[in-house]
Design a protein around this nucleic acid. Structure first.
Lengths: 203, 203, 203, 203
DNA sequence: GAGTAAACGAGACGGTACGTCGAGTCTTTTC
DNA sequence: GAAAAGACTCGACGTACCGTCTCGTTTACTC
């Protein structure tokens, strides 16, 4: 083994051509941002990536799985600065979620993507594993700190608490269309850490 | 009930053929239940309803608007028995929401429908007006009673509180895929009426 | 019935759009002449005719059947001048066959077309009925005149005699690639009318 | 047999792997017989021969050339028993041709093969040289004997005479689809050796 | 009632994208 | 160090629906 082989090596799966792989994922992400999921076509991706359609179908079973990879590889969880200040960290995470889904392509892409994934167990699980789970876990970590600090009871249903705030963000963006006001993150923080029911802003 | 409401008024205008109209909506609902939104095609509806495609496009601008009508005309808000018991009424409403979206076609159809509606302001608003708003208002009415009874502060952000529980139900069904456990409705009721953060069931 | 209705009416089959039909056949013929059968693609025809692919597939089962129609509707049997002179008429017909298959697109197109038709009974029969049969019948008529005039015995196997000269033309063009020399038609006429075995030209 | 023929000489050049070469040709012949030319794919041959596609393309420029080799190496000219009896030898040769093209795979494969070869001068010539020429020469040899024996005039156009009978066989099999009746070979022999125009069998 | 305009069923149309297949080329790994 | 294995680009395949557009044919309102 020379020092060269110690260099990081792109984890190859089979004989997959890395250049094509990256070109495809990048083109997908680009098209997703340019026009949204409803404009994303396998043919379009192939053309934009300079790749044959068959190459895409060789590695991804569907448009949905392609989008999952493009999104999970581009949408990282916010800085997650551990300021030591629980309240601040929680607020940052909530705000990051709000931003991700109201400002990036993921927001508008999600319903169609989820609809497509609904009948693809494989990709569906990939989406949950790669995209949702990391966020859920980051949230859970903060909740556990809140428990240690006495803000939450020890037997808090962390999963449900997470779904309450995260779900309502999704709901407002995707379904009700309700605008996400400035103080929203603070309302969530107050609910979680202080048990305060949401109130209208004093303003 | 005024005398006006006694005069039967077909809600549609022009020379619309009522028989066809109903046949179309019924066929849509049937196909929606048989195979979900992704199997719903205008051609299929036309064939199932024994109707020409043009007739559908004459009255509905899109597949999405057709689905909206089929769903809103078939998915009524639960009995809404005003038992006088706030806690019981709230629990019933929450449970009705859970049932509607986990047991009926609407659950699986929603993401695709919403995705389609995303670029159709008209139908999108119809969906919110006909489907979401009545539920939102029913929920708000209960919240106001809770305020009167002193369970909630007067300046409670009713809209957000509603989105918290409703949103998390959607989220679990459509996105995270988390199962909806039996005691879920009670956890929501406890949160709303008693300000109790969700806890793991004592089991 | 006015005199107008007596005017010839294009025989419609169903609701077929005559403009599209003609555009398709013309485009096929054009492409066939531009690049030959191996360049003829349904997609290309659709594009050249300004027509959707589905329209072609609605009316023709295959590329082969499309070519058959284009060829049979464009390649008419030569003038067939009945000069009264049997010898001259026969020579003209033989020469017409030589020309058709060495000078027009049909020559190069034939092997591929026949290969395609080999597994399509329907189109195959159409080809024989619309293209070969009329030529065969024209030839047979001349042979019968030859019998009347005493150039051929009464029990001549007209079909085989026809295949002898016609077959050898096909063979030279399509398979052996042997050039078709100037005096060829005369050799065939001499064989048929005078029973003369082919000889090298005196030249 | 000279001493040269005792030294075994693999007819192929370079570093060609003889085992692979044979496996490829055999697989081609097998597939050709199983499903005809339209089912013959280079991928299929590679798989059936246990060989990489590149190996095939290293030695053959195209699918057509592969088929040419498979056919020429498997379809030998009939026994060619020189019985001394010209009439019998000629009849045998004609019948062999009829059999080859009506009973073996070559018949159905030919049009497609010829169509493919049409734009490959190299393989096209190989086909004529390896396949047609030997048959043509065998036929010519018989014609020359017929001239010597006085059945044919000295200046007979042997090439055309050959194309007459051979061409009409091809024509009937590939194009007109006319059945090849039992007495056909005799009719050809009578035409060639006796100058007798074809007649209907006395039956 | 009769006449007439619309809405209707039927379904062909131009399109777009689908997912598949095979050709012929190029790359990696294995023997 | 040749060749198997197989991934690659490319282009066409035939299919499915889209939303638009004639076609005759009811249907139901006006006169």
């Amino acid at each position: 083994m020379t020092s060269e082989t110690l260099e990081w090596q792109e984890p190859t799966s089979g004989r997959r051509n890395h250049k094509s792989h990256r070109a495809i994922v990048e083109a997908t992400w680009r098209l997703l941002n340019d026009g949204g999921y409803h404009v994303l076509t396998v043919e379009g991706v192939a053309a934009a990536a300079g790749v044959g359609k068959a190459t895409i179908y060789r590695w991804w079973p569907s448009k949905g799985s392609l989008a999952v990879e493009a999104i999970t590889s581009h949408l990282v969880i916010g800085p997650m600065i551990n300021t030591g200040d629980l309240r601040e960290d929680l607020r940052a995470m909530v705000q990051d979620t709000i931003n991700n889904f109201s400002l990036t392509v993921a927001g508008v892409a999600l319903p169609a993507l989820i609809a497509d994934l609904m009948f693809e167990r494989e990709s569906s699980e990939a989406f949950r594993r790669e995209f949702l789970q990391p966020r859920r876990e980051a949230s859970a970590a903060l909740m556990r700190r809140a428990i240690e600090l006495g803000n939450l009871p020890a037997d808090t249903d962390i999963g449900l608490l997470n779904d309450l705030w995260a779900g309502s963000i999704f709901y407002r963006i995707l379904i009700s269309g309700e605008p996400l006001k400035a103080g929203l993150a603070d309302q969530y923080v107050a609910l979680i850490l202080d048990g305060e029911m949401p109130r209208y802003a004093k303003s």
